[in-house]
Design a protein around this nucleic acid. Structure first.
Lengths: 348, 348
DNA sequence: GAGAGTTTTGTTAGCGCTAACAATACCGTG
DNA sequence: CACGGTATTGTTAGCGCTAACAAAACTCTC
């Protein structure tokens, strides 16, 4: 006979299901957890009872006894950038596919303290792993220093030597962009870099610089922006009067479009007078005025790959045993140059 | 004397802290939960022990006994749109401020089944409330129909009569844009709408249409896009040869920029030949070619307001007692017209 | 059809915490 | 200094579940 509780309005518990199905609660648990040692007929009865009561196992009770929260955490940033939200989506998909819940902690600042707070917040939640969509060298360093038993990966820039993670080969992307511009016949290529402290910015700048050096071209001073269209606009105002500037590689698309805008205002045509190449391939890049040549990164894939790495690490904790200097697995995703109308041969 | 466990490498538990501080575990619990009836000196001893052991309360155990998960859920969508990620960020901030964890469930499709799956997923996690960043009328209807004891709010479009939520007054924004264009001297205003099924799209279209009707202007057939720059581009190709088209109101900025691009390709100047106004005010809107006039919405504020509503609902469950047709609280955020260079008086 | 092996099911304990109550310590008063 | 009241601390039970073991119910063999 069913327990008294079963009729009440409260959430049904396992005992209610057991009573309705005429079995012990342990048998219900076995059905729920896919134990093979349950008679098919019994399983059916239990499943029917579960449906009847619309029973849902209590996650907290389960987590308490199994010591597994089945939750992963993501640390992300306030950002109007296109990339992070795409990566988050990729991560969410992968987490769901693997049967994990996903909890997020976003940061206003990428400083050490905010990062620690976010990690603490997720640890309080007993997440089994953390994916970090971070990019500031300082933030990454803070993470690497924070001793934690929770597996962690980074998603975004490839940062070999610190934490494992999935990253785009930013340097290769930058090289491809610069090489292409030089091949078009430009004497050299100017650069609008991202903020100093960002790994992506550094890698893209390094790729730009090395390509010029390899080909023995003059290396103009690079300008630093903050990823925003506004900062690209400002950078252009500083460079626009230099007649030797015929090609610019901007560290992201938003700065590139701001750059283009300023050139336009000052009467320098794109691409006839100046070629501009961006980075990211935001969805609207092909519909800007003019359509923007850029380097495409597959952010969704990045998120999925990063999460794959994290899951692996959760499953085989020993793979991290090597420690901080060990072989951190880094999944490198190759970027792809997309040529559109904002770049061309120099017009002379 | 400390329990045997305390020396082991495992996570410390409350009993370990109690042993170290020389009190009962209940006193530790009291300190943790801010009970006033603890002697200051005792509290200090306990806090010291907590720090020494780096103790963190077990969320699962807590949730099990209190029946509160201290977790909220967000349902969001795969989207390259600027709005959703901003709203998510606003929500996260507000949730953190209120001491809640935030769990996300994203959807590939906005169909009924996906929506139900997402809700189930969050319910499995025992979230105390759900914020939905949704916009499809069908998805919203599915939500409203899904009987759940979990409080729910929507964030994004104002949808009075169904679920409570925070929304932008899209119709007012559209009216402002159209009124402005008419005031500039345009005979009428064309419209590129968002997808049929989206509430924002409907509201903006309604605002556009009514404003024209109020002023007894001809109402051109509107074109439907999918929010993407590409669809704006295509819409423009269909309209570009109509010489009577001198002003266009696009339902979002991405379509607007695609629209501008197509006009440019076909040799129609913006704003001299055609004025274009968008909606959203994406951060780069001011740096497009030409800078885009648009209607600004404060997505972050929207997220915060929505979450505020949700928290209220969690605290006072009765406020929803009115049922589906009752007084749903809707926080309306007013949008703001931003005039830039993509719009002007008709040039004739 | 008895015995050994294999499924299938049931019973018990306990995960780490808070709620409820019980017990003590402390306070000022008459 | 005994007393009632209050502030502080301790004890016990149980949240809903799974793990470990125990018991029962089937097999199959000879």
């Amino acid at each position: 006979m069913p327990e008294a509780r079963s009729a009440s309005g409260a959430q049904p518990v396992m005992a209610d299901v057991a009573a309705l199905a005429g079995v012990s609660h342990q048998t219900v648990s076995r059905v729920l957890n896919g134990s093979p040692n349950v008679r098919a007929q019994t399983r059916e009865r239990v499943l029917a009872a579960i449906r009847t009561l619309d029973y849902r196992p209590n996650t907290a009770a389960r987590a308490l006894v199994t010591r597994r929260s089945r939750t992963l955490g993501v640390i992300s940033f306030d950002s109007t950038l296109y990339g992070p939200s795409q990566m988050l989506y990729g991560i969410e998909q992968a987490a769901r596919g693997a049967g994990y819940f996903l909890s997020i902690a976003s940061l206003r600042h990428q400083d050490t303290r905010s990062v620690h707070e976010a990690v603490d917040r997720l640890r309080d939640q007993a997440v089994e792993g953390i994916a970090v969509i971070a990019s500031r060298a300082s933030a990454m360093a803070a993470l690497a220093r924070q001793i934690t038993t929770v597996p962690m990966v980074t998603v975004g820039p490839a940062d070999p030597g610190r934490l494992s993670g999935a990253g785009v080969d930013n340097e290769a992307g930058a090289r491809a962009a610069v090489r292409y511009l030089l091949d078009q016949g430009h004497r050299t290529v100017h650069h609008v870099a991202g903020p100093d402290d960002w790994l992506e910015a550094k890698a893209r700048q390094a790729g730009w610089r090395r390509t010029l050096e390899d080909r023995e071209r003059p290396v103009p001073e690079s300008t630093v922006g903050d990823w925003s269209a506004r900062s690209g606009y400002r950078a252009a105002l500083r460079l626009v009067d230099d007649p030797r500037m015929t090609a610019v590689f901007c560290a992201n698309d938003h700065m590139a479009l701001g750059f283009v805008r300023a050139l336009h205002e000052r009467g320098r045509r794109v691409p006839e007078d100046v070629s501009v190449v961006g980075f990211d391939d935001i969805p609207e890049a092909g519909f800007l005025n003019p359509p923007l040549s850029t380097v495409r990164q597959d952010f969704g894939e990045l998120g999925r790959r990063g999460l794959g790495l994290l899951l692996h690490r959760i499953q085989f904790p020993d793979s991290e045993a090597a420690g901080l200097d060990g072989d951190h697995h880094v999944a490198i995703v190759a970027p792809e140059l997309i040529v559109r109308a904002s770049s061309a041969r120099p017009d002379r």
